[in-house]
């Protein structure tokens, strides 16, 4: 701090990421209220960008071919059809989870249908609940909701299969707002609702695996990434709903393994990005199970660096977001 109470002497270090995390946080918090420091940091950040760009070099032409090929291998480009591509992709992922759960349900004996599963009193209740949650998305996707059937598996499967079918021929965006399933009423895009359907269907398949004495199974990496993105996007609002909002703070969520990647999660709903105060590292699959409420202890589920209180809050709230 300088004598006038401004941490402006840190502006240079801040602009090039050369502060300690504590200082970075306090500088950013100060700059939110101090136009002079904010302006200096913005100006020096611009200079830092100029410096960065000055090292530009034209890479060998072979690198272009190599990078584009590696990218195509990592994620297939959409066909020329364009707008429906994402719906078909999500529909295919969801369809896989539906087929898997259906296969598991068909293996259940009559007594097993009555065994408690996940947070439900019985597998039967679980399937009825899942069907009810799917109904919102079915309606948004324009699927005619079929009449209630006596067999819960058949009723759920018919509706889920109809959603998958509709998505196969989908030729538009997925932006229309839909209520997500969950305790708190949250409206998000149909795209996010579809990711949530795949998520919940996977988690309930895992619940049924427990009943059948089968080992857990991981969905594919792309689905885990979708789920992690969905959860990361919902967390700021969930922090506020849980009374644990920490405005101007953020946590760097480092997810490892299949579906991994790094995300910045604000600890309160806000337009301005928060300063990173902590880093949480865990496998993407574990994070998804945590969000589903299927891990016993939230704080023990990850490696934590930086502000432990903020990180534990994030993990604790994440563990309450999940699938009933």
């Amino acid at each position: 701090m300088t004598d006038d109470g401004h941490p402006g002497d840190l502006a240079g270090a801040y602009a090039i990421g050369a502060c300690t995390p504590d200082e970075e946080r306090s500088f950013a918090a100060h700059a939110r209220h101090c136009a002079a420091c904010a302006e200096e940091a913005a100006e020096l950040s611009r200079v830092a960008e100029w410096v960065g760009t000055a090292t530009a070099r034209t890479p060998a032409p072979t690198l272009r071919t190599r990078v584009l090929a590696a990218a195509r291998a990592a994620r297939a480009p959409a066909g020329p059809a364009g707008p429906g591509a994402e719906a078909r992709r999500l529909g295919a992922l969801y369809g896989d989870r539906v087929s898997e759960l259906d296969g598991l349900l068909r293996r259940l004996s009559r007594p097993q249908w009555l065994v408690a599963s996940g947070p439900h009193r019985s597998v039967r209740d679980l399937v009825v609940h899942l069907r009810a949650n799917d109904a919102t998305v079915a309606a948004a996707a324009g699927v005619e909701v079929v009449a209630l059937e006596a067999d819960p598996r058949a009723g759920w499967h018919r509706q889920a299969g109809a959603i998958v079918d509709v998505l196969r021929g989908w030729d538009a965006g997925l932006d229309r707002p839909v209520s997500l399933a969950g305790r708190a009423a949250v409206r998000r895009s149909l795209r996010e609702a579809l990711v949530q359907r795949g998520f919940e269907t996977w988690i309930h398949a895992e619940d049924v695996r427990v009943v059948l004495g089968l080992p857990p199974r991981t969905p594919d990496a792309r689905q885990l990434a979708d789920i992690a993105d969905l959860a990361a996007g919902l967390l700021p609002q969930a922090m506020a709903a849980a009374g644990r909002a920490r405005p101007a703070w953020a946590v760097r969520l480092v997810l490892t393994g299949p579906g991994g990647g790094t995300r910045l999660v604000d600890l309160a709903p806000t337009a301005a990005p928060g300063t990173v105060v902590a880093e949480v590292t865990m496998p993407a699959e574990r994070f998804c199970r945590l969000v589903a409420g299927r891990l016993a202890s939230a704080p023990d589920s990850a490696e934590i660096g930086g502000d432990r209180g903020a990180a534990v809050d994030l993990l604790t709230v994440a563990a309450t977001m999940g699938c009933d």
Partner: peptide, 26 residues
């Protein structure tokens, strides 16, 4: 990129390939 459009990927690389490669090389 979100829509999976390959032309966007090519444009991304052609626009920013030199700054990314240059920085990594430097």
């Amino acid at each position: 990129l979100i829509a999976g459009a390959e032309p966007a990927l090519a444009e991304l690389y052609d626009t920013y390939g030199p700054v990314v490669f240059g920085m990594a090389l430097h």
